[in-house]
Amino acid sequence: MSQATQKQPAREEQRQVQTVRSQIEKKFTRGEKYLIALIAIVIVVTAVLMVSNYASMYGQEQDISQLQSELNQQQQHNEGLEHQVSELSDPERILEIAQENGMELNEDNVTVLQP
């Protein structure tokens, strides 16, 4: 009988240990789970916002480079027109065209304008 009495306290200790372990095995409380879910949502939303901002910046950089190339083309066109204006406003050319149309140069009526 002594062995039977000795086995009963050992079983009771095992039951107590098992009940304590089952209570400890819970990993997270409900509030902690909500907090973890909230943090995960915030991280995902932040990542999505960052990616969308980078995509927007990339699109704007493309627009800027396109506008820059259009600006360079327009500047080249303007320079060509300025060169053409300087060629067409050459005094010798104007005098030649005037003489072809029957005009004569009168030195007394010549007025020199300076820009």
Rank of each mutant, 00 (worst) to 15 (best):
P91I: 04
E96G: 01
S52Y: 01
I43C: 15
L35K: 13
N53T: 05
E70P: 00
L88Y: 08
Q99M: 06
K27P: 01
F28T: 06
E25K: 09
E107S: 15
V45Y: 00
D90R: 12
V110M: 13
N101K: 04
I43M: 14
I41C: 12
H77I: 02
I64F: 15
E100C: 08
Q74W: 00
Q68I: 03
D63W: 03
D63K: 15
F28S: 03
S56P: 00
S86A: 15
G102H: 09
Q99L: 08
H77T: 07
L95F: 11
Q74I: 02
E79L: 14
V42T: 10
L105I: 14
Q60F: 10
E104W: 03
A40C: 14
G102F: 03
I36Y: 05
I97G: 06
A47M: 09
Y34C: 04
N109I: 11
Q76C: 05
V110S: 02
V51S: 07
R30S: 10
Q73E: 03
R30K: 06
Q62N: 14
Y34F: 10
Y34L: 02
Q66K: 06
L105P: 02
L105R: 14
Q99V: 09
D63G: 11
V44G: 10
E100R: 06
Q84M: 12
V112D: 04
E107D: 05
Q68H: 08
T29K: 13
S86F: 09
I39F: 05
E25P: 01
E96C: 04
A47Y: 01
Y54A: 11
E96Q: 07
